[in-house]
Amino acid sequence: MRNLFAFIYRFRAFLVFVLLEALCIYLIVQYNTYQGAAFFNSANRYVGRVLEFQSGVTDYFNLATVNSTLAQENALLREEVLKYRQANLTDSISQMDTTLLVATDSATVHPFSLHAGRVINNSVRRNNNYLTLSIGTEDGVEPGMGVIAPNGVVGRVKTVSAKYSTVTSLLHSQMLISAKIKKNNTMGTIKWLGGDYRTAILDYIPLHVQMSKGDTVVTSGYNTVFPEGIVVGTISSIVREADKSFYTVKVKLAVDFAQLTYVYVVENKQKAERDSLELNAGILPNE
């Protein structure tokens, strides 16, 4: 306290000067319209800049929460798209019975739901690549579920813990996906042969099939993992080899696996029933 009084006494003249200057500024601003308006406009501008900077800093540290919320909202929107697509497929099959859609259970019309998750580990340079997601059994994720990104197919859930899950990437030597050429519904199998992480092979396309570069390849819907019509990629090259009965078709994958941030795990509410039925019938599942 003694030091404080000593400081005030030492700089008493300067402190009185500052106090009088402040009082003068207050009186000028308070009792002069022009100076008051100029002062408050300037003050508002600088205060606005400070608040804007503060808001920017706060928003930066809240980005993880914002992104997670947006991913959840996108998952709901994509569910609606899948529901609309599934309803159209069902409607096209049941054109002769207009009451069928009304009498059909909602899980039958739309068996798929999506769970948004953040990618916390990923590889693209190995022969067998995997991803790790920040969601697990507590979020409804189970082994065998499909995984998609906003622009295409990603892979399949391999193992799950309470809060995390690992995914066998499409960029895996043992990963096969049942697919078809969208314009003519010709069935094939997508397989990654290594090397370029943006290119895969579409196998088993017969030589009589008409196709061209740029044609879209989508999931076939012949399994319980992926809904029908999810984009896999576009045809980038077609080669007819003399010693083979099928084309060698290269597909440019729609997903850039090196830049994955958020993905969606696909839950099929009818998977257990269908898998059990096909297993009992001795039918091998489509990849």
Score class of each variant (00 low, 15 high):
119 V>C: 00
5 F>P: 05
44 N>F: 12
72 Q>K: 14
112 F>Q: 03
39 F>L: 01
148 I>D: 01
250 K>G: 04
285 P>Q: 15
194 G>F: 06
204 Y>C: 03
283 I>F: 08
235 I>T: 04
67 N>Q: 14
1 M>I: 11
188 G>C: 01
180 K>P: 07
122 N>I: 10
221 G>Q: 05
99 T>Y: 03
147 V>C: 00
155 G>Y: 04
240 R>A: 15
24 C>S: 11
110 H>Q: 13
268 N>E: 02
92 S>G: 06
171 L>F: 07
286 N>P: 03
215 D>Y: 08
111 P>T: 07
237 S>D: 15
144 G>C: 00
11 F>E: 15
16 V>R: 10
37 A>W: 09
281 A>T: 07
106 S>Y: 08
202 L>V: 12
153 V>H: 02
235 I>R: 02
76 L>P: 04
221 G>F: 06
217 V>L: 01
82 L>H: 07
216 T>P: 05
238 I>C: 00
4 L>F: 15
166 T>Q: 04
227 P>F: 08
159 T>I: 04
131 L>P: 13
127 N>Q: 11
61 F>G: 01
165 S>K: 08
49 R>L: 10
3 N>K: 14
184 N>H: 09
249 V>L: 01
9 Y>N: 12
269 K>W: 06
92 S>P: 03
118 R>E: 05
9 Y>K: 15
168 T>E: 13
26 Y>A: 13
251 V>M: 01
64 A>E: 12
285 P>E: 15
196 D>N: 15
247 Y>D: 00
219 T>M: 00
183 K>Y: 06
85 R>I: 06
39 F>M: 01
127 N>D: 13
200 A>P: 10
119 V>P: 01
45 R>K: 15
83 K>T: 13
110 H>K: 08
225 V>K: 02
169 S>Q: 05
237 S>T: 14
192 W>F: 02
36 G>K: 10
157 V>S: 01
141 V>L: 01
171 L>M: 03
83 K>I: 10
160 V>T: 05
198 R>W: 10
103 A>G: 08
161 S>Q: 08
146 G>H: 03
56 G>N: 12
113 S>K: 08
228 E>D: 15
3 N>F: 09
169 S>A: 03
69 T>Y: 12
96 M>P: 02
86 Q>Y: 11
85 R>P: 03
230 I>P: 00
116 A>L: 00
282 G>Q: 11
194 G>Q: 05
92 S>E: 10
217 V>I: 07
17 F>N: 11
85 R>E: 07
49 R>M: 09
18 V>A: 13
117 G>R: 05
48 G>V: 10
185 N>E: 11
238 I>R: 04
187 M>A: 13
116 A>K: 06
151 N>A: 02
24 C>P: 07
45 R>W: 12
244 K>W: 05
